[in-house]
Write a protein that binds this DNA or RNA. Structure first.
Lengths: 158, 158
DNA sequence: GCCGAGGTACTCGGATACGATTTGTCCGAGTTAGAATGG
DNA sequence: CCATTCTAACTCGGACAAATCGTATCCGAGTACCTCGGC
């Protein structure tokens, strides 16, 4: 099991958008990160459908965050790109085979599914506690406080 | 992103093996759960390579847990079937593009990778805290205290 | 009756096809900015 | 000089292939049990 590669791209793009003043096109975002423009566009469309970003058409169009970077969690982005479903899909094999559980005992989810769901929840909570704004702050700190300013400058220059 | 279907099978099989006295063949395990025998064998082989179960060849051969069910965590099994790697694979796109980060600022992992790693750890800790023995107890409780005894009886009868 | 050799049936193990999901790409519909034109 | 119209370029959006990974299957290598023969 592995996360889609687009998750990384989408998170970086959201951080970039949080530093932009106006719309930024998929073309620019792809150029800035040196990634396939068409495929990135596909993921941005998904973010648009989910209401994380808003798309502006036209000559000076592009994408804009629909709300503050502090109000967008990493989980929001991951859930859009990777799908909202849980990792584990219970196929209810306890109901199959010669020792199939009787339906009356299947009112609750099987204990294996419960265990996996618990872990799933822990993962989601960890991601929900981190916002795009947090990521931006950390990226800036790692770079010595120049990264975000460089991005803002680059966006204006282009 | 989704977990391999074999994870569910492997966990059920480990619970079953925890109730067995001697070796149980892949054929029997597949029959008991009504799943493809050959494909299940593939996963059991992986568990054998990882040292979770021990394989016994010969006419009365099969698989046996290498240690107590209480000493085998759900994470052990999941890591074998699904691979030990983390969900998120950082491709270091911060080093690409016109605003590539200078190598001196890349001594630490990128903040996005750190955020994802934190969530990954939370997930793994949750799974590490649950043992195969715990699953067995819960399954038995769900069934009203008959499931494990039925499994033991079925294993002896065949 | 006991021991040993041989055969047999069962097991695991890796190498081999198939299908689905993810990845990657393309072109068309729609919209906005700017230029050209007329008043 | 200003309003209007038109063109044109740029944008997003969904529809269309290729590659990779998960799924499923098969047959060969090896081993323990059972049978059979000899002592």
């Amino acid at each position: 099991m592995k996360l889609s590669n687009g998750v990384e791209w989408a998170l970086h793009c959201c951080v970039t958008l949080s530093q932009a003043q106006g719309p930024v096109s998929a073309q620019r975002l792809a150029e800035l990160h040196d990634i396939p423009p068409a495929y990135l566009a596909k993921h941005l469309q998904a973010l648009s459908r989910a209401g994380v970003v808003h798309s502006c058409q036209g000559q000076e169009g592009g994408y804009v965050l629909t709300r503050s970077a502090r109000a967008i969690s990493v989980l929001d982005v991951v859930a859009v790109i990777d799908g909202p479903g849980e990792f584990f899909r219970c196929t209810e094999i306890r109901k199959r085979g010669p020792l199939a559980a009787s339906p009356e005992h299947c009112s609750t989810r099987c204990s294996i599914a419960r265990a996996m769901a618990t872990a799933d929840l822990a993962w989601r909570e960890a991601l929900a506690n981190i916002s795009i704004a947090d990521l931006a702050v950390n990226i800036d700190a790692d770079s010595g406080g120049t990264a975000l300013a460089d991005v803002r400058e680059w966006l204006k220059a282009h």
